[in-house]
Write a protein that binds this DNA or RNA. Structure first.
Lengths: 342, 342
DNA sequence: TTGAAAGCGCTAACAA
DNA sequence: TTGTTAGCGCTTTCAA
């Protein structure tokens, strides 16, 4: 009933607490018969060491903090699974925190992880200026891995996706398909993915010799409503676009909804390519052409980076850049206009 | 740099550790000037109490374990947010665990929660026979709240949805719209939602005087492939259905994919109604008619139940049953056949 | 190869 | 109103 402690095991097995501890932690210099006797005691008593006590002793835990904006975003879902599966295989436990991109929440969670003596944290930072909050945490001895987004003036292990290239490929794809008025719904510009994706767009337009019409560039905030509103703006204009590149999944969903409401045919009237794939992107109306980010691998890599940092606290900082890839379905009109795929 | 402890604060403020502790925990009988002096010391030193130590002392924590099958399922996403938001407001911290419906994983996580001295766990159990794993945990003093599914012979606080009624309404909706050959893709039958939803179907068919064609009843396992495969089976048969009720979101996605592959028009050739709504259900092709479960509220209620149990450990067990509601979009064909909605 | 003892940071009697 | 002290469960010297 009451909790079984190491003391109970010790007296049951007729040895000292120290010996039980040694058995538990696989120390050398324990007689075989003693070892088995202790094991039996542990089993019959159903003993499990108190993590609180261990943590107090060791001043660290096997907890891995994972701080993300929002679990309802499909990208972060696969990312979380990548982190969890990898951590689980290493006997680490993941504590998931949603910041909703609110810096204060992020601060609270970072503090929590410190207080919990987490082994380290993997963070998708809320803001490029987050250095002020992150640096003290690292100074206090907790390894930090940044994921998906970067923070200004903050050298740190990072896993990200080549946003510029992804957006470049998507935009070029639209150009090659012959669209003339390509609009872009960009994301929050002071988030790395936001401006990198816009830059990728611009690069492609320039490289392919397409003049940039600034009235076709809208800056959103990565949320559904934003995609919805900006699409309305775009389509209500005197010269609406014939194709739209949307910078993330949520805004793409908003764009889709707006276009349906306006009874605009996709891709006949307007073609659509989104950044971020979703498991059900092929079931949307129409099946969505999208730049797929390797969310699961991003999670995996982040954990690997953390383990490396834990093993070698003084190793130099490392940035891992993963590739995205374009998945051509129907919203871009490739099936109508032929395959000029990149 | 090094961790600031209560001792540091005490000596900085020129008082004893006990006094610092009293200030920290808002005890009465602390002189005002002492209180402020300690507060200042805390602030300037940037002190945060060690949770490990507190936990060791108190033999319990403010951690709430949330054990679900899979975060990639939209239902569990809103559920998680409901739990997190509610717990957060109560200063509790949520540790999320995905079992993938694998009993062994569930066992590991339950053990982890015990070792972490969680205040309680909210569990979506993997199996109706899970009593053997769950009961010992509760016996050991940890409150358990069951969510979404029930466990045989295990009296416990539970939050669930009225699956029978939800399926009933969905099926009746199809009957009222005039469909004659209504198929059902059911879920795992030894999971409560699985057989309850099938029962709801049967009830509706019987009540409305529709003969049951057993060849139109398929038992799946709640996963995408299952919905996909069974839809293929259904449509390849000599007498395919003119409507399908699918028992959860993932299988509905599979069904949708299969129907598209077969170039079956929805709802003209086959109507479709799914259990579980999804944020983007309206963007699917066609917009999906679905039974919406109140995932967020389920999460909220589960936390409330846990708090109640924590406050009154001996209160009698309580079962909360939430209603689902039918959201009529286009996949059921209501817009073509007129509004015979329930 | 084993045991005794100290101490991790905190809180709660008990005393003053 | 405050300080002293013991102890939560564990690991790790140090000594035997």
């Amino acid at each position: 009933m009451a909790n079984v402690t190491i003391k109970d095991v010790a007296s049951y097995a007729g040895v000292s607490k120290a010996t039980v501890s040694r058995v538990l932690n696989n120390h050398a210099y324990v007689a075989d018969d003693v070892r088995t006797r202790v094991q039996q005691a542990v089993d019959t008593l159903g003993y499990h060491p108190s993590r609180a006590a261990r943590r107090l002793r060791a001043n660290s835990s096997d907890i891995l903090g994972l701080i993300i904006p929002d679990i309802e975003n499909p990208l972060f879902q696969s990312l979380v699974r990548g982190v969890e599966d990898t951590a689980y295989a290493q006997q680490m436990n993941v504590v998931l925190c949603n910041t909703d991109d609110i810096p204060d929440k992020q601060k609270v969670y970072l503090r929590l992880m410190q207080a919990e003596q987490a082994a380290g944290v993997i963070v998708v930072p809320t803001h490029p200026d987050d250095r002020a909050v992150l640096e003290p945490v690292r100074e206090a001895g907790m390894p930090i891995i940044l994921l998906d987004r970067e923070v200004a003036n903050f050298e740190v292990d990072t896993v990200k996706v080549d946003n510029v290239h992804g957006a470049y490929v998507a935009t070029r794809h639209l150009i090659l398909l012959g669209y003339k008025r390509i609009a872009v719904i960009a994301g929050t510009q002071n988030l790395t993915p936001g401006h990198e994706r816009l830059r990728g767009c611009y690069h492609a337009l320039k490289d392919m010799g397409v003049a940039i019409d600034e009235s076709l560039v809208k800056i959103g905030n990565f949320k559904i409503e934003s995609g919805y509103d900006l699409t309305h703006e775009l389509m209500k204009a005197a010269h609406p676009p014939d194709a739209i590149f949307v910078s993330n999944n949520l805004m793409t969903l908003g764009a889709l909804r707006a276009l349906h409401e306006l009874s605009v045919r996709i891709p006949e009237d307007v073609a659509l390519v989104g950044f971020d794939d979703m498991p059900w992107a092929g079931d949307l109306n129409p099946p969505l052409t999208a730049v797929a980010q390797p969310g699961y691998e991003m999670g995996q890599q982040a954990v690997q980076l953390l383990l490396r940092r834990l093993a070698q606290p003084d190793a130099s900082f490392c940035k891992i850049m993963l590739q995205s890839r374009l998945i051509v379905r129907q919203s871009c009109g490739a099936h109508l206009r032929g395959h000029n795929s990149p």
